Amino acid sequence: MTNLHPYPQLHAGRDEPILDAELAIIDSAHHLFDRPALRYMFEDYLTDVRAGHRIVASIFVETLAFSRSDGPELLRPLGEVEFANGIGAMSASGAYGDCRICAGIIGNADLRFGDQVGELLDQALARAPERFRGVRQITIEDESDAPFRYVTNRPARGIMKHPKFRAGFREVVARGLTFDAAVFHHQLDEIARLADAFPDGSIVLNHVGQAMAMDLDAQGRADVFKKLRASLRELGRRPNITCKIGGLGLPFWGFGFEKRADPVGYLELAAAWKPYVEAAIEAFGPERCMMESNYPPDGRAAGFVPLWNALKHIVRDASADEKAALFRRTAARVYRLSVQD
């Protein structure tokens, strides 16, 4: 039986015991939006935060939600930055608990505007000086149309090869901001070239490099994993790249959990995700990896409680110092957060 809810596991597993309950977590990527298919706003994320895991802060990442509907196209992403900054201010009041939701903000920017992007970045910094930490521009591409049925805003092809892209990227680097890179595994060589061209730039690889293995058999998925692992090792040689571990609930990986109507527990998730998590940590080391919920999109395959339980279970043999880096310290350093444990 196939569950027709767009995120069938969104509320699953809240009765699971919380593993390592005292471990402080900075959720390095989540989203808030209000769309016809799903509404996931402050109160929804707050409910998940209160489900048992010790989330002390979170990083809001753009989805082009709440962008301005008019005005210069370059500046329309400011609407989402202003929205997230308001949520951050609400959370910082302490009225909703100890977790600092939207403590960091990753906004959207179309780097094809070249050096004009500087105006957008300066205005975002002016509007959210305590929280605006960088930008993301989704650049996923694939020969198949299959993955894009799960994407709200399909990006144009060839964005990173656009003649003005690097001029826009230079504006990000000049302000000490991060660039969150969202690609598929077969595009990781482009991220390597970008990192080499801007050794002072901070690039955060989203979702373990996002293997595109939909609709493949076991051998096909194994071949994709082999290529992904090799690419991660190559990227790991570049000290200006860090890696977010998460996004494993997305359909692209080919695990098939999004087709399940019954709750998926953390042990099953951990068994499927373990090779990919270990490949990222092997390539970058704990000090350059950060855990993420990628909620609510990962709710397609994993409940919030099982998701974090699975990530904790996979690294259960790591030292306390390594766990601190994976779950909190790397995100705090990269996104310049001052968060109390």
Rank of each mutant, 00 (worst) to 15 (best):
P263F: 02
P17K: 09
N240L: 06
Q137V: 05
G71M: 11
H313S: 05
G114L: 10
G114N: 10
P275Y: 09
R54D: 12
R50L: 14
P36D: 13
V135K: 05
P8M: 12
L188K: 01
K274M: 09
H162D: 14
R316E: 09
P275V: 11
C102R: 02
D317N: 09
K274L: 10
I106N: 02
T242P: 04
K164E: 08
N206Y: 01
Y295V: 02
C99D: 04
P306D: 11
D20Q: 14
N309I: 06
I314N: 08
A126H: 00
E292L: 05
W308G: 12
D122Q: 04
P251S: 09
R68T: 09
V173R: 14
D196Y: 07
D115R: 14
P297K: 08
H313R: 03
D223I: 02
G107F: 07
G265F: 10
D321C: 01
R68F: 15
D341C: 03
L248Y: 08
E234M: 13
P199R: 11
E190I: 03
I18C: 06
I241S: 01
H162Q: 10
Q116A: 15
A167N: 14
F304T: 04
E268K: 06
T242R: 03
D34H: 13
S67D: 03
R76Y: 04
A218E: 14
T47H: 07
Q9N: 11
R154E: 08
L235A: 00
S67P: 00
S93C: 06
I55C: 09
E287Y: 00
G220P: 01
L194V: 12
V135T: 15
F169L: 15
A21D: 15
K164Y: 07
A310Q: 06
G247I: 05
Y45W: 14
V183Y: 03
A92D: 13
Q9R: 14
A12Q: 11
G94I: 14
S91F: 07
R39K: 14
R54L: 11
D200C: 04
I191D: 00
P8S: 12
G52D: 07
V56I: 15
L269E: 07
F33I: 11
D200S: 09
D15L: 10
G256N: 06
A324L: 13
A301C: 13
R127D: 01
